[in-house]
Write a protein that binds this DNA or RNA. Structure first.
Lengths: 143, 143
DNA sequence: AGCAATAATTGGAATTATTCTAATTCGAAG
DNA sequence: CTTCGAATTAGAATAATTCCAATTATTGCT
């Protein structure tokens, strides 16, 4: 039995016909498996070219559609850095992103145990946060 | 004497010929004064049309150039929300942004006294953060 | 199974924010 | 006043993403 946990990397065929109410078409399975396989925060274009290897007929528009379906069903996260193309991340745990300015590489950064927003932000009372994105940029010591 | 503090809104003429080593041309003063005047996080286009009122000959390219100059000299902050056009913010205090999903309005959100990154993020040791952006989205209770 | 209704995929065109380019203008310094 | 680098300009170019209309696939009925 396959699981979609933090480290699994199922082939498209191993993915079920439906996840969380989202019908997994051939293309969606392909795209999802690509995002799960190499967790290097690929852009839509990256996903497109990787998908083409197994499925040469897939179109870029479909890749965008699939990514959008996966994102809106909460199976994949969309990651934005400034004005760069969106990237996609299958890590659903609460985390944010750090981009190494030298290499462009993006690293996941987790929150410390038990921290929550209200602890560090002066949010107006009654604020209901539905979406949070934290993006860091900088250098890593050893570089 | 004018100050560029959180609430001043100088006319272009009131701005000095140079700020922080950045030569303030007519256009840069115009653009800066527009950003200082209405702190509603305008897009480059918003700034363009507001600037045109006083300076009908200014070009959009110049607005982009001026904003870029102001941002890179640290006089204005560039604010990004997902894939929306960049917005510009003259509030230089340490803060982040909350977008009301209903209206699209962006509000500044300040950090609680004395909080710092390392307190809530599990940053790899040796990480030097040069840039941090926190974007929240959601609803405000009363809406 | 056969068929209608619905949803997904496709290629290509369209959109849009932003950047680039090359020519002109400006302004500070001598 | 002239020079020279920097800034401005209009318009073209770019690039990510979205839209569109036509085709194809899938589901749910009977």
């Amino acid at each position: 039995m396959i699981s979609l946990d933090a480290n699994s990397s199922p082939t498209p065929e191993e993915l079920p016909p439906e996840i969380d109410g989202l019908r997994m078409t051939k293309q969606r399975r392909e795209v999802f498996s690509v995002v799960l396989a190499e967790r290097d925060h690929p852009t839509a274009n990256d996903v497109f070219s990787r998908s083409q290897k197994r499925m040469p007929t897939i179109s870029l528009a479909t890749v965008y559609n699939c990514l959008e379906a996966l994102v809106s069903h909460g199976l994949v996260r969309q990651v934005n850095f400034e004005r760069e193309p969106s990237r996609y991340c299958p890590n659903l745990s609460d985390h944010c992103h750090f981009q190494d300015e030298k290499t462009g590489t993006i690293h996941d950064v987790v929150f410390k145990e038990g921290v929550n927003l209200a602890d560090f932000l002066e949010l107006p009372q009654g604020t209901e946060v539905s979406h949070l994105e934290i993006s860091l940029k900088g250098q890593i010591g050893s570089n």
